[in-house]
């Protein structure tokens, strides 16, 4: 018996969310009185693999096949199923991100293992295996009980704080036989947006709405984001008016984010927008309308014109950052 966790990497290096997934898996392993095995697919250095021990992986199963350097949902699901069988896994953890959401459902259907997609809690074992997840685009939570012996969980990134501990993982190579079908999707082109913090994994987000009055005013928002090291987001009307690209749209029909800090500038806070961001730990609302519904969902508020307040806030952030050094 064990808990296994898909340890995602980007060209051989691990990100914080992977450590979070391992730590989460290890917490469940503790609840079940068993051990944690991280499964790493593709090319990663041995030293990097061992460091996963510091986040709770006692063992790493490494499938070193370089064909796995790019995501193939079929091949990843097959490799995880093979690792699960080898380890007698009772719980399989992945992240609720683009990779996890491609692989976990295939794995769940393949093993007929029930899934909780987008978990935000550890399982409650007092009445079965009950895990909390967001539903209605963040407007509510559901407690989902998994009925099957093997369980699959995708963890919503940025749910738990990551703490580095001690420990070196025991690395074991695993060989999995693939066939051509597993790699029948060919990657033609990869276009990465460089120089900015990806929105989905950003800890700090600065977001603009119609109160910004027009795309020409965005440099003021960008200046604040730069000062904070934050990612940029926007409301739906802003994306629909093509003031900003669609991938920045957060809300019920855009992206759902849960950063540590969400600063909403000139966004009134329609229910659809709140749905996409109310998982944020701290919300700051800047709006000239004191009746804006967003203030009810905010931790901190400033009433005033966005374009007057933004430079002041940026200056205050810069002053604070300099004092920190």
């Amino acid at each position: 018996m064990s808990v296994i966790v898909l340890a995602e990497h980007t060209q051989g290096s691990f990100k914080k969310k992977t450590f979070e997934a391992i730590q989460y898996a290890n917490h469940i392993a503790g609840q079940l009185n068993t051990t944690t095995t991280a499964v790493v697919l593709g090319t990663v250095d041995a030293a990097n693999l061992e460091q996963l021990g510091a986040y709770g992986a006692q063992k790493v199963l490494h499938v070193a096949d370089s064909k796995l350097d790019n995501l193939s949902a079929r091949a990843y699901a097959k490799a995880l199923a093979s690792a699960a069988e080898k380890e007698g896994a009772k719980v399989i953890v992945a992240l609720h991100d683009v990779t996890g959401k491609a692989v976990a459902p295939r794995l769940s259907a393949r093993l007929k293992a029930g899934i909780v997609a987008g978990a935000v809690s550890y399982p409650d074992l007092s009445t079965g295996f009950k895990v909390k997840k967001g539903v209605f685009a963040g407007k509510a939570f559901a407690f989902v009980n998994i009925n099957t012996e093997v369980k699959v969980i995708t963890l919503m990134p940025n749910t738990f704080a990551v703490q580095k501990g001690e420990g070196v993982a025991n690395v074991e190579e695993l060989s999995v036989s693939f066939d051509n079908k597993d790699f029948s999707i060919q990657v033609q082109e990869v276009n990465k947006v460089t120089g900015t913090v990806p929105l989905a994994e950003a800890e700090l987000v600065v977001s603009g709405g119609r109160g910004m009055k027009g795309p020409e005013n965005w440099p003021a928002l960008e200046a604040l984001a730069d000062a904070l090291g934050a990612a940029l987001a926007c409301s739906r009307p802003v994306a629909d008016s093509h003031w900003r690209p669609h991938h920045e749209h957060v809300g019920q029909t855009g992206g759902t984010i849960r950063p540590n800090l969400y600063i909403a500038v000139g966004i009134s806070g329609a229910i659809q927008h709140l749905a996409g961001v109310n998982g944020s730990k701290t919300i700051v609302v800047i709006n000239k309308d004191p009746e804006a519904p967003f203030f009810k969902a905010a931790d901190y508020g400033v009433i005033g014109d966005a374009l007057e307040i933004l430079p002041r806030l940026t200056t205050a952030v810069k002053k604070f950052k300099e004092a920190q050094h």
């Binding site: 899934i115 407007k139 203030f295 400033v302």
Partner: peptide, 21 residues
């Protein structure tokens, strides 16, 4: 393979702290 056993609403924020511009 799974079932929803109950629901919950997110905690209501206790009140916004305002700052002057």
């Amino acid at each position: 393979l799974s079932e929803i056993v109950s629901y919950d609403l997110p905690p209501v924020k206790t009140g916004v702290k305002m700052f002057a511009p």
